[in-house]
């Protein structure tokens, strides 16, 4: 177990290093820079040059790269080029808890409803409940996030004026963003759960349990569920990583001050330190999540041996 963790740790470090290096050079290869002339504001070239010097952008690329790695080792992600006195560390410290809070609620909702829908449609296979759940799931998978969130906002905020449109100041503010975030995952989990459940229900041990006279609800929730849930756990790693780090669309539409939209706007602004800082942060986060999921396998399914 310890050997496995150590091995994983070094593999992760290498992954991070490759990730940072690729991102760094790719990012600099996009034409334009943080201080290229902005729209309709003609700041003199000499001033732009001075700004570049201030941020060390006049140095050759490999020097900038080494400098970045040095600072990174000290935990310093640098200052944003766009918001001139905000550091990337601050940006993450402020934004991540907000994104994570909305994300956690959405994950909870997605798991609860997704698993329930999956079980129901597996048990009632071919009946109307199954059909309803699966139609819902298909819609959930096929409606893009940006359409859904705008529709939600249109119906609940503009038409019926029931819910607020921006910010996160009361419980009401959470409703639409959470629905927007969890809709897709609910659908995915429901389908995954259904097929996994159907497969497990065909297994011999279920037949044995039924033959023993175990009540149906115990067969489902004790015997079948435990085995059917493993694919969901696999999906949980990337899901948690994606949900906690925020969604560009949901955060943009509902004006949530999380970190989900910083990455995309960072690329638009050529805000190098924000792009790199968030890449590092997301990278570490995804690696850690996948690692936790691997450990979880072993706990849920005793047959999985971690040393393998």
């Amino acid at each position: 177990m310890v050997g496995y963790i150590v091995k994983r740790f070094f593999a992760s470090l290498l992954t991070m290093f490759v990730l940072i290096t690729i991102t760094f050079f790719l990012m600099h290869s996009i034409p334009g820079g943080p201080f290229s002339p902005a729209e309709e504001r003609k700041v003199p070239a000499s001033v732009l040059q001075k700004m570049e010097e201030k941020f060390g952008l006049h140095e050759p690329l490999h020097v900038q790269y080494v400098n970045y790695l040095k600072n990174l080792l000290q935990g310093d992600l640098g200052f944003s080029f766009k918001q001139l006195d905000v550091s990337v560390n601050e940006l993450i410290a402020q934004g991540f808890p907000i994104s994570a809070k909305v994300g956690l609620i959405a994950i909870g909702l997605a798991l609860l409803i997704g698993i329930l829908l999956g079980i129901v449609s597996a048990i009632k296979r071919g009946k109307w409940a199954d059909w309803t759940a699966m139609i819902f799931a298909t819609i959930g998978i096929s409606i893009p996030n940006f359409v859904l969130t705008v529709l939600l906002m249109f119906f609940f905020c503009v038409m019926f004026k029931l819910l607020p449109t921006y910010g996160l100041t009361s419980w009401k503010h959470y409703i639409l963003p959470v629905i927007g975030l969890s809709f897709g995952p609910i659908a995915y989990i429901a389908r995954l759960m259904r097929s996994s459940m159907l497969e497990v229900m065909r297994q011999d041990f279920i037949l044995t349990a039924r033959a023993k006279g175990v009540p149906e609800y115990r067969v489902i929730f004790k015997h079948a569920l435990k085995n059917a849930i493993i694919p969901i756990v696999t999906y949980l790693g990337p899901l948690v990583a994606a949900m906690l780090t925020g969604s560009f669309i949901v955060e943009r539409v509902f004006s949530i001050p999380g970190i989900g939209r910083d990455f995309v706007s960072g690329i638009g602004d050529r805000d190098y330190s924000v792009i790199l800082g968030l890449t590092v942060f997301f990278g570490v986060f995804i690696i850690v999540m996948n690692f936790i999921v691997d450990i979880l396998y072993a706990i849920i399914d005793k047959r999985v041996k971690i040393e393998e």
Binding site: F154, V158, T165, Y166, R252, S255
Partner: peptide, 18 residues
Amino acid sequence: IVFIESSEAELAAYSNGE
């Protein structure tokens, strides 16, 4: 001064009286 990035969302917030 609140920050609303998308202009559609801002229109919704205005229509909603927020």
